[in-house]
Write a protein that binds this DNA or RNA. Structure first.
Lengths: 219, 219
DNA sequence: CTCGTAAGATACAGACTGTATCCTAGGAGC
DNA sequence: GCTCCTAGGATACAGTCTGTATCTTACGAG
């Protein structure tokens, strides 16, 4: 079942949810449970994508979701938790297929950065980072934040570096944790500094000038 | 002349500036011109350092500076401009000497990252990035923001990479703009993600695992 | 049907924003 | 010394938002 939520005029006191899988379902005026939570998180995410972390307000989210602020505060004590939950929700929703293995380290990395370069993934990174910057002041590490917001899938994800090691292209002795995350670190750095998607040139600079030479060096 | 500003109780309508270079200077009740602007920017910077970009308010800055919000608004239309000006001010004030050249690429890079790791420089980076993220949405590039906030000194600053090229340790063909800024990009990335100073280990990882191997490779 | 719960509406006090207006402290000029 | 001008500082205003509390009643379970 997908939701078609009519955006109510401000001040309207009913929200009409029209279930799209059954034209005969009774019309509901109040949402509950999972339906409500999905609508809330969608509203948060849309608002976050529209205005960013700083300008996002409970008031605006409530308005967008057609609910009252109390409903939001009952679930999430503050903006951090709100955005974190929305990011988690968005991630779960957009679990599109990752790129297929190409057999080439360079192509694998490029494909993955292109995939990450889609708008929703960039928003996800921004959300993670904003939340992380806050929690870092409380002694929470970035790795912990990332785990909190993006639970590691139990399915083994494909790693371009592991594949290249298996093909004998990369010496595992070179692969430190920092080098393993370097491509994505540089990608994130770009995301945080620019509102626009990375150019193809930026992607190939990251891969061809930095990551691949480091990974494939012989000494 | 340095300023000793007594923090007035809220509601107090005079601010006493005691010039420390002359005990006989007349007591002034209102600040003007450069004295005032310095006091304002100092207050902004302290507030920014204390509470960060998000929680910084004109109200709190005005209170801390012992002035009215109108005085701030007369100079800076919004938070971005306010913080940008304060960062510029802080940079000008803390122009401490950069590390001396060591004769070794690695040591030069490490020394510079250690220098950058001081609290005030990290605050500067944070301020630049926050402002930049905002202006990026308006099409301003990060490079432009950085130029705006940290005017390039006309004095030629020492570059570890240039020195290493001169010593024959680095092939200039390898030195792309992205590689030239890599050490500092990775440093900034760490600063943005963590509230604590970088550990010595993180610094040496950046330099020894990534930057130096890339710069000094032969192929 | 009844009952329990939480959705949604609304009120409250406080903080902050952006703007406008007023009084008068400072400094320049004579 | 004086006068004049300007902007510092105080304050008011209307609006938005926050965090919290309270009330009514729509839903869903039994």
């Amino acid at each position: 079942m997908s939701l078609n939520v009519d955006d109510p005029a401000p001040g309207t006191d009913t929200v009409v949810i029209v279930p799209s899988t059954s034209a005969d379902a009774p019309t509901r005026q109040r949402r509950r449970g999972e339906d409500l939570e999905s609508a809330l998180l969608l509203a948060v995410w849309e608002e976050f994508t529209d205005v960013g972390f700083y300008d996002l307000t409970f008031e605006a989210v409530a308005r967008r979701a057609g609910t009252s602020r109390a409903v939001l505060y009952r679930r999430w004590p503050g903006k951090i938790e709100l955005v974190a939950a929305a990011a988690r929700y968005a991630l779960a929703k957009q679990r599109g297929p990752e790129p297929e293995p190409t057999g080439s380290l360079r192509e694998d990395l490029v494909a993955r950065l292109r995939w990450a370069n889609r708008t929703d993934v960039r928003s996800m990174i921004a959300a993670t980072t904003h939340v992380g910057a806050y929690l870092a002041a409380e002694g929470v590490t970035f790795a912990e934040v990332r785990t909190m917001m993006m639970p590691t899938s139990s399915s083994a994800t494909f790693s371009p570096i592991d594949a290249a090691i298996a093909r004998g292209e990369v010496d595992p002795a070179h692969v430190t944790p920092r080098l393993a995350s370097l491509a994505f670190d540089l990608f994130r750095h770009e995301v945080l500094l620019n509102a626009q998607p990375l150019t193809e040139r930026a992607i190939s600079e990251i891969v061809d000038e930095i990551v691949v030479p480091l990974l494939t060096r012989k000494e």
